[in-house]
């Protein structure tokens, strides 16, 4: 039994914008019967480049149907430019999250949208031009690299959850590991370059901080019986509260400045100041 959010269940039981536009400005057709899920998205774009209508037809499980339904709601009223920036994470988030094994459903939504936009613009998507790595599901290296970068994937299992690659016969696992390693190394190399452009929105900043806390800082503190929660972010000031063995610990100030602040400065913005909640 999958743990679906109420939002997923709502969109699954009462999907919005089902069907196919008669004269679509763009059509995105992704997935196939053999893959177990497929989505046909049709969009209508007006002269100002605004998506005025969107309809979908989906073959797939509850999260595939819910992802498609919520996608049509999100993009209606968006400009083509805005819609091009939509990520699979945005789709998953609009649903209150998806089980990690089901993230590929949100990726399918994003792919269909991209395909529809490309169709509208009359261009060919570069993704299809990559080298097919996973033969079972027809996933190319470009798609995999993109997913690794966009969703910050760190294991072959995560790649499978997001792109389905490696979820069939499993023959491509070694190649996936190789792509993962190369991509991650590439990202690391980029990070060491000084960031000129650090104009993140507050929301992006919070998200990024939370991610670093979850992935790196929390696991390290937990090893010593401690924990940390994000309380507030105001400009460059990050307020956290230390829990468990960390709270009241003599060296908590050191932990905060030397470890937490350092990590966050390295990975988010190098002007951050971390303070403990009073």
């Amino acid at each position: 039994m999958w743990e679906y959010t109420d939002k997923v269940q709502q969109h699954f039981m009462n999907p919005q914008n089902v069907g196919e536009l008669e004269k679509p400005s763009g059509t995105g057709d992704v997935g196939s019967l053999s893959c177990g899920d497929a989505l046909k998205l049709t969009i209508e774009v007006d002269d100002n480049g605004i998506i005025t209508d969107a309809k979908f037809k989906t073959f797939g499980c509850a999260s595939a149907i819910a992802s498609s339904s919520v996608l049509t709601e999100i993009i209606k009223g968006m400009s083509i430019e805005e819609a091009s920036k939509l990520t699979n994470e945005d789709i998953a988030e609009a649903l209150g999250g998806l089980p990690k094994e089901k993230m590929h459903c949100s990726v399918m939504g994003r792919e269909a949208l991209e395909a529809a936009i490309a169709d509208f613009k009359g261009v060919i998507l570069p993704m299809a031009e990559g080298e097919v790595v996973c033969e079972c599901f027809g996933v190319t290296d470009l798609e995999i690299i993109r997913a690794i970068k966009e969703s910050d994937l760190r294991s072959v299992e995560e790649i499978t959850n997001f792109t389905k690659a490696g979820g069939g016969c499993g023959k491509c696992e070694d190649r996936l590991r190789e792509i993962l390693q190369q991509t991650v190394e590439g990202i690391a190399a980029e990070k060491t370059k000084p960031h000129k452009d650090q104009r993140m929105t507050t929301l992006q900043k919070i998200k990024k901080i939370e991610q670093v806390l979850e992935r790196e800082i929390k696991p390290t503190l937990k090893k010593d019986g401690g924990d940390i929660e994000l309380v507030d972010v105001d400009g460059d000031f990050v307020t956290v509260s230390l829990r468990g063995a960390c709270s009241g610990c003599q060296s908590s100030r050191t932990t905060l400045k030397e470890y937490v602040e350092k990590k966050l400065r390295e990975q988010v913005v190098d002007t951050l100041i971390v303070e403990e909640e009073k």
Binding site: W2, F12, M13, G36, F59, G60, C61, A62, I65
Partner: peptide
């Protein structure tokens, strides 16, 4: 044919 099992099961679950 042409529908997916999990979706069917969840509807039956209702």
């Amino acid at each position: 044919e042409f529908v997916e099992g999990e979706a069917i099961l969840l509807h039956m679950n209702q």
